[in-house]
Each structure stands twice: as C-alpha cells, then as structure tokens.
C-alpha cells in the first residue's frame, strides 16, 4: 500500500535535510563568541529530540507488544532501539565537540551530561540484548527492558533542574538563542531531524518486518 509513497517521501526528506545543511552552513552567521563551531548546536539539539522520539517509539512498541503480541511491535522496538543509540551517540559526540570549545572540557560530571551518557548505555545494552538475547523470548525481554529504560528519560529531561552546579545551558526553555535567523534555523533543524528520524524509523521497521517474514518462511521450509 505504501510502496508508491516510498519515492516521494524519500525525496521530501532528502530535500529537507539538504535545506537544513544549506541553512546551517551557508545562511546562518557565525556566533560572535564561539565562531563556526556554534553551528553544531543545530544538529545537537535536533538529534537529542530525535533520540527522545526513538525512545518513545521503543516505549510504544513495548507496551503494544505486551498487550497484543503483534509482530510489528517487535520490529518497531528493534528499529527504535537502534535509532535511539544512533541519535544518542550523535548528541554525545556533538556535545563533546561543543563542550571542548565552549567550556574547555569534552565532558563534565554534571547531571544532564551524565544522564544522557546513561541513556546511551541503556540503549547500548538494549541493542546487546537484541544481539545476544534468547531468540524465543526476545520480544518480551526487549519490551521489559524498553519500558524500564524509557522511565529514565524523564530523569534526563528534568535533571538540569536538580542541582545548582551546571555547565549545560537550558537553551530552548530560556530562549538562549537571540538572533532570529539562528533561532529559526534551530527550530527548522529540530523539525527536520525529527522527520528524518521518523523516516528512518519507518524504513528500519519495514526491514525488520521483512526479516521476520523471511525467518518465519525459513522455519517453515
């Protein structure tokens, strides 16, 4: 049913990502204080939101799987888990580059940074479970770990309010970006990366479902 939409959706996403790259590298001015390295912010914030969306997909997949045992839920968890790890890695890598320039240290044991690293570890362990777990119970086990892992996300989001000692700025909530062109690009980057993530999620879920069908056919043969 969706086959005829593959090409237009892929083209739309490619156009959006190209527009984002054009905006970030050719349109937005350099930051007065940080210089060109500030451009990493447009990918850093958007990737963090994309990671949250992927984690939410794991959570939805886990809950629906435990209720219905539909095969697409396991496929969604598999895709969501991989994308959560990918986008958490992007957030950590871009954050380290930013941190080294802005604060003179790539990492600091400060709540937001530590808890995001923790999210990365949770989804690393989730993916390790997908690789090494018991095949016959993998969907159930992934669902349980997915639910437990997702419960850590609110801690990450609100961790910035817990303590007084903070390096990580609250850019979005406190309107830290003043230049209208910068804030417009930041918003565009967030929307584009979320849409890109949803596209990847959809694509990866379809692949996981095809794998499952092939495995089932192989079992029957």
């Amino acid at each position: 049913m969706f086959r005829r939409f593959y090409a237009p959706i892929t083209l739309c996403v490619a156009a959006l990502v190209s527009a984002l790259l054009y905006s970030v590298f050719l349109r937005v001015p350099n930051d007065e204080w940080l210089g060109p390295i500030q451009r990493i912010l447009y990918f850093h914030v958007g990737s963090a939101l994309a990671a949250y969306v992927a984690i939410f997909a794991v959570f939805v997949g886990a809950l629906v799987h435990l209720a219905t045992r539909e095969p697409w839920c396991d496929a969604l968890m598999e895709a969501g888990g991989e994308l959560a790890l990918l986008f958490c890695s992007i957030v950590l890598a871009t954050g380290m580059i930013w941190g080294y320039t802005a604060w003179n240290t790539p990492f600091s044991f400060e709540p937001r940074l530590v808890t995001f690293l923790l999210l990365w570890f949770i989804f690393l362990s989730f993916n390790l479970l997908r690789i090494f777990g018991d095949r016959t119970r993998l969907a159930n086990h992934s669902a349980v770990l997915g639910i437990i892992g997702t419960l850590t996300v609110p801690l990450v989001i609100y961790s910035i309010d817990f303590t007084q000692v903070q390096l990580h700025p609250k850019v979005i909530g406190k309107g830290g970006v003043k230049d209208p062109l910068m804030s417009e690009t930041l918003r565009f980057g967030m929307i584009t990366l979320i849409l890109f993530q949803l596209f990847l999620l959809w694509f990866r879920t379809k692949i996981a479902l095809l794998h499952k069908r092939l495995d089932e056919r192989g079992d029957h043969d």
């Binding site: 923790l118 362990s125 479970l129 018991d134 437990i148």
Partner: peptide, 29 residues
C-alpha cells in the same frame, strides 16, 4: 530490577556478562 533483568539474562548466550550490562545503566539513578 535485578530479578527482572537476571531472568532476562538467564536465557541469553552471554548470561553472566549480560546481567551487569543490563542492570548497571538502569540502576544508576
């Protein structure tokens, strides 16, 4: 947490190694 995760790790190929890998990140808070 350890009852849930040790039951998950029990049936995996890397039983003894997988359990701390699953438990420690979620236990961190």
């Amino acid at each position: 947490l350890s009852l849930l995760l040790s039951a998950i790790a029990e049936h995996s190929r890397l039983k003894a190694v997988l359990f701390p890998i699953l438990l420690l990140p979620v236990l961190f808070p």
